[in-house]
Amino acid sequence: MGKKNKIYLLAYALIIFLVPAIWKNNYHLMVLNIAALNIVVVIGLNLLMGFAGQISLGHAAFFGLGAYLSAIFTATFGFPLWPTIILAMVITGMVAYAIGIPTLKLEGHYLVMATLGFNIIIYILMIQLDGVTGGPSGFPGIPRLQVGGFVFDSDRKIYYLLWTISVGTLLLSLNLIHSRVGRAMAALSHNEIAARCAGIDTENYKVKVFVISAVLASLAGSCYAHYITFISPGTFSFFYSIQVVTMVLIGGIGSLWGSVFGAILLTILPEILHAVKEYNVLIYGIILMVVLIFFPQGLFPVVAGIFRKRKDEARSGMELVPGKGP
């Protein structure tokens, strides 16, 4: 994945793991923990949007599937923690595969509609199957994350675990896009027909990327459930799906570092906007519009550009940025 990325990743990990030493406020750490999980979802979604040229408006459902499957299997049936998280990822992956196979074969953005419909159906099921999910009042008493008897029972302790998962996801994804598969995906998002002519099995790749991104969302969802120990359907509505798509766009499509930036920024922004009370929705909407109108490549290149000379940027290319589809 290139020497530059390795250095960036090392610096990034270092900063991340130094933060709790300086920052003592537990609430702020909690916000950062949520950001770590959002990063996992957003990176997965960006793989799909930036490298397979497809949009999903149902990632909240995969996130929720991970959370609820984890909660139900561990709290209700007493399954062991980590195997359950894996199991939830496998089930979510299979569901995504079942949705992806028929929709991704078609030209155009059928995945948008299918994932959107799926999101709404899952949301309604979460509310209605109250015998299993706890209904609208939610699912309490989910066991905490633990490794070999060590229970992660404070925001500070869990910070290290969640950010390890988050940085790990970034590392693996950076590796993925710089591999043969990644180059095939870049070709596919640039021009699907040309990619197909070059012998890339585009359908197969699209479905695979979709499944990977759903599985990542499921992982984040499971971690969320075991971290907060309480989940309710509201968290997994269609609006979360829009939020994560927004995070991808603000960070920049196809830029994984951008996704990290976008996820952190948009997790913190609503917390800051709490200060303006009822104006928060309006201001959030206006910020989103202004960024998209004036910085369609996302804010990350703008911010990164301040720290770097243009020439330098053009020569090295921080990462593989695919072109947009036709």
Binding site: N280, V281, L282, L292, I293
Partner: peptide, 30 residues
């Protein structure tokens, strides 16, 4: 918003309408 957008990419324009939708909703709430 739509005409002033720097990128005419479909996805960006669609997301601008989502931004508009959130803004209209926020303003109506007030």
């Amino acid at each position: 918003p739509i005409r002033r957008a720097k990128s005419k990419e479909i996805l960006i324009l669609v997301m601008i309408t989502i931004g508009a939708s959130i803004s209209i909703k926020g303003l109506s709430m007030i």
